[in-house]
């Protein structure tokens, strides 16, 4: 049952990852090199440029489709939250084939990594890893508040106003 729920999430993950190839400003050319197949260590350094730079960006014009069905492996059906990995389908992009593996702990995505990624192109090492959580609400002892408080009316109602009024 969980697998059925997992598959749309895998597709979403790919939808999130594909733009990596599309938005990196260093993507100016693609060469014919064999794709780097294999599991990528999680602690990869990210390749990126420091702003501002003088680069060009590629238009987002990839058409891609799937060629292989997702496969699922479940391991450690122990204790409360089972850890499960799901391999996504191979997705063709303008830069080459992409396949991701998503790790679930219980129902939550705890890791996303590339099984297959183009060896060329701008972000070959950038595998951002996002953790999915539930939205919480609460209060805590804080020094400052980050939020979009752009009006004085919003400020008056904000926790930041309370902190400023309270003083040290």
């Amino acid at each position: 049952m969980r697998i059925h729920r997992a598959i749309p999430l895998v597709v979403l993950s790919i939808a999130g990852l594909v733009p990596l190839w599309l938005y990196d400003p260093t993507a100016t050319e693609t060469t014919e090199v064999a794709a780097d197949v294999g599991i990528v260590p999680e602690a990869q350094t990210q390749t990126s440029t420091e702003p501002p730079t003088t680069t060009t960006s590629k238009p987002a014009d990839s058409g891609y489709g799937t060629t292989a069905p997702p496969t699922t492996t479940t391991r450690k059906p122990t204790t409360s939250a089972a850890v499960k990995t799901v391999n996504g389908p191979v997705v063709k992009t303008v830069h080459g084939d992409v396949q991701v593996q998503v790790t679930f702990t219980g129902d939550k995505i705890t890791a996303v990594k590339f099984l297959k990624q183009p060896n060329t192109g701008p972000t070959k090492m950038a595998a951002p890893l996002l953790i999915q959580e539930t939205l919480k609400a609460g209060s805590a002892d804080i020094d400052s508040v980050s939020g979009a408080t752009q009006t004085s009316e919003g400020y008056v109602k904000s926790l930041q106003a309370a902190i400023d009024a309270k003083g040290n």
């Binding site: 609460g138 805590a140 020094d143 508040v145 939020g147 926790l159």
Partner: peptide, 26 residues
């Protein structure tokens, strides 16, 4: 300790971040 405002409740937080020499924007 920098709280992140809850999107639905102006008087509540949805996360608290710990920073030294860093910036946060929402």
């Amino acid at each position: 300790r920098v709280g992140v405002r809850h999107p639905d409740h102006a008087d509540q937080l949805c996360a608290v971040l710990a920073l030294r020499n860093g910036a946060v924007a929402t």
